[in-house]
């Protein structure tokens, strides 16, 4: 592979854009196809399918064997709330290879001292999320402040952006009130059902670290939904 091609592939990933590297494994000849270029590629149909599933693999075309390295944008976790649970969540999420960002407008909470390993934005979600390039399908959102003023705008943005995982902390009663507010804001039942609340798998978590585990387990179960033994 040419260094320039490897460099282009790395640049696409850094820009959070999906791309496929098509390699003829007999000759080593390769080309990079970005999502918007796929339709005009000789392998258009196969590439469209690969962009949909995100799966790398080998295909045979006219007796030639091609390997498709499918590169989806890195999975990202945005946590709203620089709270105790987030302090436990951030290093664990990094261990799972997630790009983590903490957002909380309360400057007493959102300090680099409390979050030495990850970027912290001491701003309202309405200011912070655009700075992150907005939310997208490859982003997970965890709302952890309990404060509707902070959580709700982020939840609405995540529903619109079709984030693959959306979770919100709070009791069933808190969530019932949240549902009412989202309905009033025009969100339908199917949208609202995409929010995991109370957040996290039901593992009986008590401590912030245990709650972080339950949140990340739930996030992974959405990320790997197509590999699950039970739907």
């Amino acid at each position: 592979m040419d260094l320039s091609l490897l460099s282009a592939l790395n640049a696409e990933r850094a820009a959070r854009r999906a791309a496929i590297l098509v390699t003829d494994v007999a000759t080593g000849e390769a080309r990079l196809v970005r999502e918007y270029e796929a339709a005009s590629d000789p392998l258009a149909q196969e590439l469209a399918e690969r962009f949909r599933t995100g799966r790398s693999g080998t295909i045979e075309v006219d007796g030639r064997s091609f390997f498709l390295t499918v590169q989806m944008p890195p999975v990202r976790l945005v946590a709203i709330g620089a709270v105790h649970i987030s302090q436990a969540l951030a290093p664990m999420a990094k261990g799972l290879d997630l790009d983590v960002t903490i957002v909380d407008p309360r400057t007493a909470f959102a300090t680099p001292e409390r979050f030495p390993d990850v970027p912290v934005l001491a701003e309202w979600p309405s200011e912070a999320l655009p700075k992150l390039g907005g939310l997208d399908r490859y982003t997970a959102l965890a709302c952890l402040t309990h404060d509707p003023k902070i959580d709700d705008p982020a939840l609405e943005a995540a529903l619109r952006a079709e984030c693959f995982y959306i979770g919100a902390l709070g009791s069933r009663r808190t969530h019932a009130k949240r549902v009412e507010r989202l309905q009033a804001a025009g969100f339908g039942e199917a949208d609202i059902a995409r929010i995991h609340a109370p957040i996290g798998l039901d593992i009986g978590a008590v401590s912030p670290a245990e709650i972080a585990v339950s949140i990340l387990a739930e996030l992974v179960s959405e990320l790997r939904r197509d590999r699950r033994r039970t739907p």
């Binding site: 260094l3 490897l6 460099s7 592939l9 790395n10 990933r13 590169q71 890195p74 261990g95 290879d97």
Partner: peptide
């Protein structure tokens, strides 16, 4: 440290450069 496949491609580029 554990490395993801994306880290590895970045590293491959850095090593070559």
């Amino acid at each position: 440290m554990l490395s993801s496949d994306s880290d590895i491609l970045n590293e491959a580029e850095a090593w070559k450069r």
